[in-house]
Each structure stands twice: as structure tokens, then as C-alpha cells.
């Protein structure tokens, strides 16, 4: 299986990473190499095997519903690339 120009356009859009036209061939070549590597998995029959998401077989711990975080927003807003009047600012979003 190999990555097409269409695939790369879709991936760029989903991952929100711009890929310049001049770089596309090289990006595809390297991704194809990686896909070839991971395709070694396809030889294995995994029909009856439970997928493993976590290394340890434990369940989710629960937190008590008490407030532990308090406002530190001046410091946080200052770290924002663009902030104004308590908001983080981005270019106008159209719904």
C-alpha cells in the first residue's frame, strides 16, 4: 500500500500541518517506507486476541468532587500568543 497525493492532502488537513508542494514527494517517500515497516504486522492472525490499550490491568481511579484548582489566569493569559480582556484571541471563526 502506498500513500497517494490525495491521502497526503487529507492527512495534512486532518493533522493541520501544511505541506508544501515541493516537499510532498519526499514526505510520501518517507511515509511509504514507514508503512512498509509497519505492514509486517499484517502477516499475524489476530482474530481472537483482545486488544491491549494499557500495560497494566487496573481500573480508573476516581477523584473526589472538591475544588483543588484556583484561578491563576493572569499568568496563563500572559503565556498566550495573543490575549485581550481576559480572552485568548484567534482570527474570527465562522460557524
Amino acid at each position: 500500500m502506498s500513500i497517494t497525493q490525495k491521502d497526503i492532502a487529507k492527512l495534512s488537513k486532518l493533522a493541520k500541518i501544511n505541506i508544501n508542494d515541493k516537499d510532498k514527494e519526499l514526505v510520501i517517500k518517507k511515509l511509504d517506507g514507514i508503512l512498509e515497516l509497519i505492514n509486517a504486522m499484517q502477516m499475524v492472525d489476530t482474530k481472537s486476541i483482545e486488544p491491549m490499550s494499557h500495560a497494566l490491568d487496573i481500573s480508573q481511579p476516581l477523584r473526589e468532587d472538591t475544588q483543588t484548582e484556583f484561578s491563576n489566569k493572569d499568568r496563563y493569559l500572559e503565556l498566550g500568543p495573543d490575549s485581550n480582556e481576559d480572552y485568548f484571541i484567534v482570527p474570527r471563526v465562522i460557524e
Partner: peptide, 11 residues
């Protein structure tokens, strides 16, 4: 939307 011209504020 419209925090100021062409800007959206995130809360």
C-alpha cells in the same frame, strides 16, 4: 465572536 474586528475570543 467579534471581540474586536475579525477576532474571536476564547473563554
Amino acid at each position: 465572536h467579534g471581540i474586536h474586528d475579525n477576532a474571536t475570543g476564547i473563554d
